[in-house]
Design a binder for these strands. Structure first.
Lengths: 208, 208, 208, 208
DNA sequence: CATGAATGAGTTTTCATTCAT
DNA sequence: TATGAATGAAAACTCATTCAT
């Protein structure tokens, strides 16, 4: 629970940074712990001392990515304000847009994190809920609550908020996973923003 | 001397069937070809004789999944009719709904195929475009065209059809990948249908 | 003992011809019987029907090479005459020269046979006595006898003929094995002839 | 941290020693690295850690044999003296005799090394020049120079020294390769010495 | 604590040989 | 008699993990 000593932690950070690169490039199974150790400039034993085994190293890497993503999004979207209050202030729709944009920006800047996300799903069958969507909302309740209030307020249609949260997360996930492969055609940000706009306003004509 | 497809192919089919199970359960790297051979009731050499190596075996498995999915969806959605003409007849929105439902039904029935899809993305960096969404639309042009006509007809909002196609595919992909893990809570079909409904009509209230 | 049917033997010949190429190029262990069968245009089973197993196929190839070499040398050197009588007629020294030259010519024309010879020594520990040095002298007695008479006649120094035969054979063997690798610098024939000349007349000055 | 040569190398030495036995007995292709590891009392991984792969292990073995042979011959023949100077002193003919004898002694004592030599030729097509014939003469120039001076001095006949060097080496090689198989009949040393004597003084009678 | 040499279980792949057709 | 699909024993090589220094 407690942070490592300020000095040693440096080493852990370095290992994690290199592990990210290697896992992203090679995949979990194919990655060689020796390579990670070498890149981090430490002995293999040190890696094992810090993280126990390869699996835990991967999981730590994944957690680290999530934390970083969460922090980035929180910073970009909220700038320290309370999400629920902020939503009430600027509206849920603009907030969801900001979330999506920040989300895309982050993964555009760090495509390796997408690979980690996918690896975790594929190797460990972990649900890929972009839990870092909201500040500290490791358990999605934040998003649910936000939507609920917006529905009550009439800003959003009267939908099942659980379903809506799932759909929003699934859309972001799917877009980022496929979008980060599509070379340089469109930026990931543009793709995500386009998709979210459709999601917000619907594909069907409204007069129907 | 004898043709390979009708009867003899039986053995290849069997191998593919078991490979699907094993790859889905263990993941590509972790899967042991020996296990596949044993389950298929053939020698390991036979597997290699048929598929060359592990990678090609996996790719063949993946292709097989895609083909089956495509055939199922085609059957369910179109029943032999021409997709474009059919869309003109019943409307693009109902057609997209049918596609999504069939898509979900298929993967609900065969969750292993989802794992294969994810493995392929994770191991081989293959874009996961649900190319089998439409009959013979191995190149998504079908869906694009369908949407284009619906936009002209005024059935859909005047959106960028390329973006819309991407978003629709990404949404299906994301929902299926995450949905098939969520135990039995909600059926995958319900989740997908809910998500698509949102996508079609929008999350935001219309008066905005 | 009896030759195969005049028709089927054709097939055996073809197999042997291709086996020679493959064994020479790949080495005994590394050679793939399937490749030989393919090149010979027959099924793998046919190869086994004709030669029993890989080892016997190799040995048959080797024997075939030896036979061909023997026949060539016999033709070149003796033109049908009796070796002993012929030596009495033209002298042992000229005869040994002719043998060496023919020997070198043969292996220069068919370097694969050198590889086979080496493989046999290396894989099966067979003494590599160029038994084909003389017509029908599969058992070197021919050469011994020839030298013995030349010694008696005073043509050759009073040496141990057994030793001399061995040395002559060893020299030819060593020269051919190393000479066929030395690219195109000197022809194998020149190298062998040079070596034999030294062997005949000695390296040391005669006044000693 | 610690040097690799003096003490730790012990393990590498042991592996090499056992590899020599196994390669000699089984041949390169037929040899099983596991067996070598077992005999050396180390894990298979250790063998691979030290030598990279089977081929490099073999090549290291071969190099080791050559080094040992070279050192032995140098010691026996020269006892630390300069080869050229020594030849001037005792004469080239006695020196060549000493070389041949030492050469034969070495391989008589270590017949495995002959097998390695043959394997290398057969598997890797390496020219088998007994480069270790002379002290530090990894490039035969030593022998060439030695003969040149002896020719000038009138000790040897006016022959092409390059040809003579080749012939001498080929003769030694051929004799050793065939001689070490001939059971215990004659010692390898006797066979080589006999062959070299013939080579030095010629087979033909001198009056011719 | 850090290190990296040592280990050996685990996997892929090859190919000689067989045998049903 | 000819074939080539099927087989599985065999072997090279890798790499997570341990532990003596």
């Amino acid at each position: 629970m407690k942070a490592d000593s300020p000095k040693t932690d440096q080493k852990g950070r370095k290992i994690l940074r290199e592990a990210l690169k290697v896992f992203a490039k090679e995949g979990f199974r194919n990655a060689d712990v020796q390579v990670i150790a070498d890149l981090a400039g430490v002995g293999k034993g040190t890696v094992y001392r810090h993280f126990g085994n390869k699996e835990q190293l991967f999981l730590a890497t994944s957690r680290h990515c999530l934390t970083e993503a969460g922090e980035f999004i929180q910073r970009e979207v909220l700038s320290g304000r309370d999400p629920i209050g902020f939503a009430d202030e600027i509206g849920a729709v603009p907030l969801l847009r900001r979330i999506a944009t920040a989300y895309a920006q982050h993964y555009q800047r760090q495509p390796e994190a997408v690979e980690i996300m996918i690896q975790e799903r594929s190797e460990f069958r972990e649900t890929v809920f972009p839990s870092h969507l909201m500040h500290r909302a490791e358990h999605r309740e934040g998003l649910d609550e936000l939507l609920r209030r917006a529905v009550e307020r009439g800003e959003l249609r009267a939908v099942d908020v659980t379903q809506a949260t799932d759909a929003f997360a699934d859309l972001l996930f799917g877009t980022v996973v496929n979008g980060c492969l599509s070379g340089g055609k469109t930026s990931l940000v543009a793709r995500v923003e386009g998709a979210v706009e459709l999601f917000l306003h619907g594909l069907a004509a409204r007069d129907e």
